[in-house]
């Protein structure tokens, strides 16, 4: 069973078909890129995968479970976690608290324990701190742990968002334009980080990106969409030569 299985995914907003018969099979520990011109429907696909929108037609299975009628927070618990195109951190919370919020579902103590602070509470909170610090270390953010998230520089905010997504213990990581707004050096650093994350946490990564250097550099497979339809699939090499892709990006 594939980790993520998407069949005939379609969504219509009134007369506009934003995503049309999208298909995807993501195996474990794969790194797949999703590219396409502006307005092609990439982010809409992400919103469908994470349960923000309900598809008009088609089905999505995460780790074998149909996500139909599931809320975004339930889909996260199935094991798919995302980042956002425009960073959405908990700005006025500390860096470590950002991670701890995402660790919420890995903890089980109840409301009463949080008031009496019993043994279970202390053990799980300590575990949350340990995991959060280790995660921050992976991203080189551990010295900022008590800083407010909004005070981090842009590149570090991006990293924190990925770290936060990982704290939910996902099997699939959905990255929405992680390199947006980064300079070439930061992008380079990000490429290394994504590779490292994939190896270290054994996750599959689905990546939306406009930076071709990044996409061609690290993706094993690439899917190109335009006007909500898949126009090409294949290895970076094949995509680079694909007629339809060149047409979509550059015109006739």
């Amino acid at each position: 069973m594939a980790l993520l299985e998407v069949k005939d995914l379609t969504i219509r907003f009134g007369g506009l078909t934003a995503v049309d018969n999208f298909e995807l099979i993501l195996e474990s520990n794969e790194l797949v890129g999703l590219i396409g011109p502006n307005g092609a429907g990439k982010t809409t696909i992400f919103n469908l995968l994470t349960g923000v929108y309900a598809p008009t037609e088609g089905s999505i299975h995460v780790d074998g479970v149909n996500t139909k009628n599931k809320k975004p927070n339930q889909i996260v618990m199935l094991g798919s976690s995302r980042t956002f195109q425009n960073i959405r951190l908990f700005k006025d919370m500390s860096v470590i608290d950002n991670i701890k919020v995402a660790y919420h579902n890995q903890m089980t103590y109840n409301l009463l324990s949080s008031i009496v602070k019993n043994k279970k509470f202390r053990r799980e909170e300590q575990e949350a701190v340990d995991v959060a610090v280790e995660l921050l270390k992976v991203f080189g953010l551990e010295q900022f742990q008590n800083e407010l998230a909004k005070n981090l520089p842009y590149g570090k905010q991006r990293k924190l968002e990925i770290a936060r997504a990982l704290a939910t213990n996902p099997k699939i990581l959905l990255l929405d334009e992680p390199a947006a707004g980064m300079n070439p050096q930061e992008t380079e650093e990000l490429m290394e980080t994504i590779k490292l994350v994939k190896e270290r946490f054994k996750v599959s990564v689905l990546l939306i990106e406009h930076d071709m250097k990044l996409v061609m550099g690290i993706c094993e497979r690439i899917i190109v969409v335009d006007y909500g339809k898949i126009i090409a699939k294949g290895s970076p090499k094949e995509i680079r030569k694909d007629k339809a892709v060149i047409k979509a990006y550059l015109g006739e």
Binding site: F84, L89, T168
Partner: peptide, 15 residues
């Protein structure tokens, strides 16, 4: 607190 900060993000980390 995370809901105050960003509802969408909060939902996306499983809250």
């Amino acid at each position: 607190l995370s809901i105050r900060e960003d509802e969408i993000a909060s939902e996306s980390v499983g809250i």
